[in-house]
Design a protein around this nucleic acid. Structure first.
Lengths: 144, 144
DNA sequence: CTACATCCTCTAGCGACTAGAGGAGCAAGA
DNA sequence: TCTTGCTCCTCTAGTCGCTAGAGGATGTAG
């Protein structure tokens, strides 16, 4: 029972997290179960909004829910060493850099495809031809 | 009934697409239903392998299954204009470029976070602090 | 004949939501 | 007071592109 409380819709507006997503976060335990009104509606206070904003920002940076769970528990205990937080962020950074590298390779190949496409018959199409060309190492698939 | 036929495991080895994935592709209609032996085992010929390689390559480039469906149907009709294929590839290129741009922004923010982290107490941690900082526009979430 | 590999179908699970059904609560105007 | 219309509730199922596993049939080598 805090001084200022918000309904879920207002919390969504202020945090930038959608209503069903907030409920989902509660369900998976990323948010503590909200207090309720007599009419069973969820109530959120400033602290909840901060937590939601934290989650949203972390998700924007691509942290997985499990990582966010850890980061949140670290945040709740400011005397702890932040080595764990640092490790999580560094791991994410490495992931992102790998991803960028592989997307750059992708971009180059796509660029070659569309540049060489004279846009005539499919039979002469470089796009189709490139895709059909099997002279590629068996690498793993691009995720997105 | 083609001259040379392969079992699904062999097809998987040659195409670089895993066995359950091949069955999955058949199920969703990306591959035509394979012919069968008397004992109900799937049989694949050269053409099927080519198709599988095509799909694999397209997936590596991040094309969605629906786009691949279109690309395959274009490939099957070489007299058609390849404008559609070109459009699909160009759309994908634009997606990839957007993705790279947003990942670069991500990388910069992550880099700043980990560089400024003195790795002391969580209370002073830049990683946690940056995440908690709500001075961010409400953009949409990063997908990976 | 017996291992053992490979194959079959079917169902369920992954992550992080999103969509929709079906119903209840609540504030404001007529 | 009633009614309109918005917000809220729970619950289930769907998204995408697979992947994992159960439980059983078939094929092959020794």
């Amino acid at each position: 029972m805090s001084k200022v409380d918000f309904a879920i819709g207002e919390a969504a507006r202020q945090s930038g997290v959608k209503v069903p997503t907030i409920r989902y976060y509660e369900q998976i335990g990323l948010l503590p179960a909200a207090s309720r009104t007599e009419g069973n509606r969820r109530l959120y206070d400033r602290r909840d909004l901060d937590r939601l904003a934290f989650i949203r920002h972390a998700r924007e940076l691509g942290f997985e829910v499990d990582a966010i769970r850890t980061l949140l528990s670290l945040q709740d205990d400011p005397e702890q060493s932040c080595a764990a937080a640092d490790a999580i962020a560094k791991a994410r950074l490495i992931e992102v850099e790998k991803r960028i590298a592989s997307l750059n390779a992708l971009r180059d190949e796509l660029l070659r495809m569309v540049e060489e496409c004279a846009c005539g018959r499919v039979g002469d199409c470089r796009v189709i031809e490139t895709l059909a060309d099997a002279t590629h190492a068996h690498g793993r698939l691009a995720e997105a």
